Amino acid sequence: MNKEKLNYKIIERTSGTFQGTLQTACLEIYGEKELLNQFIYSWLGVIQYIGQSPFRKFHKRKNWFIEISEVSELKEINILETEIKYQAVRSQGPGGQKVNKVNTAVRATHLPTNTSVFVMDSRSQFQNKKTARDRLIEKIKLKNYENLKSQIQEKWNHQTDIQRGNPIRVFTHKY
């Protein structure tokens, strides 16, 4: 398998108790779809490491288990202008008669997700509309990322459920 055509990005990682160790890591692996699926599915499951831990030299345990699992991919966000509803409203707060008379603030709502933002940064309705669109896209991306993080956390919460009896790969350290 030609792994040079695959790339990765570290999304999140948690350091272990000993220097140079990891407790958990979440990677995004990307590349040609067929090669990517072949690589990922060859590693999904439980991996067994047999050997004395270099970090816990006097520990009796010789079998260490690691689970490699997949979370759903972070979806590419394509927001169409037709999916956004804009509403011009009066600004709030201090500002005198200008604030009370002119509808310059903008509320933008993404209809499929029912996510909305309210912008009154500028005196220009056009500028507020543009800012609202940018903030709405950013807010939806953040929600999508938070959803991915919750999936990762859910996998982490079930780490003690590792099936230790049937590893897909075994690595042995010789003394």
Rank of each mutant, 00 (worst) to 15 (best):
residue 2 N to M: 03
residue 2 N to Y: 10
residue 2 N to S: 11
residue 19 Q to I: 08
residue 27 L to V: 02
residue 28 E to T: 01
residue 29 I to S: 03
residue 29 I to F: 02
residue 36 L to T: 10
residue 36 L to E: 13
residue 37 N to M: 08
residue 40 I to E: 04
residue 44 L to N: 06
residue 46 V to L: 08
residue 47 I to C: 08
residue 47 I to E: 06
residue 51 G to D: 00
residue 52 Q to K: 13
residue 53 S to C: 02
residue 55 F to W: 10
residue 56 R to E: 12
residue 57 K to N: 02
residue 57 K to R: 07
residue 65 F to Y: 13
residue 65 F to S: 02
residue 66 I to R: 00
residue 66 I to K: 03
residue 68 I to W: 05
residue 69 S to D: 11
residue 70 E to W: 00
residue 72 S to T: 06
residue 73 E to S: 13
residue 76 E to L: 03
residue 78 N to M: 06
residue 80 L to D: 15
residue 82 T to M: 05
residue 87 Q to K: 12
residue 87 Q to M: 09
residue 88 A to N: 14
residue 90 R to H: 14
residue 91 S to Y: 11
residue 92 Q to D: 06
residue 93 G to Y: 07
residue 96 G to F: 13
residue 97 Q to T: 15
residue 98 K to H: 15
residue 99 V to W: 07
residue 101 K to P: 05
residue 101 K to Q: 10
residue 103 N to W: 01
residue 105 A to V: 02
residue 106 V to M: 04
residue 106 V to I: 14
residue 108 A to L: 05
residue 109 T to N: 05
residue 111 L to E: 10
residue 112 P to E: 07
residue 114 N to W: 01
residue 116 S to Y: 07
residue 116 S to Q: 07
residue 117 V to F: 09
residue 118 F to S: 03
residue 120 M to N: 13
residue 123 R to H: 08
residue 123 R to Q: 12
residue 126 F to Y: 14
residue 130 K to Q: 14
residue 132 A to G: 07
residue 132 A to N: 11
residue 137 I to L: 13
residue 139 K to T: 14
residue 140 I to P: 12
residue 143 K to I: 06
residue 144 N to S: 15
residue 144 N to W: 01
residue 146 E to A: 10
residue 147 N to I: 02
residue 150 S to Q: 06
residue 151 Q to S: 08
residue 152 I to C: 04
residue 153 Q to Y: 12
residue 154 E to F: 14
residue 158 H to G: 07
residue 159 Q to D: 10
residue 161 D to K: 11
residue 163 Q to K: 12
residue 165 G to P: 02
residue 166 N to I: 09
residue 166 N to V: 06
residue 168 I to T: 04
residue 169 R to N: 00
residue 170 V to E: 01
residue 170 V to L: 03
residue 172 T to S: 05
residue 174 K to W: 04
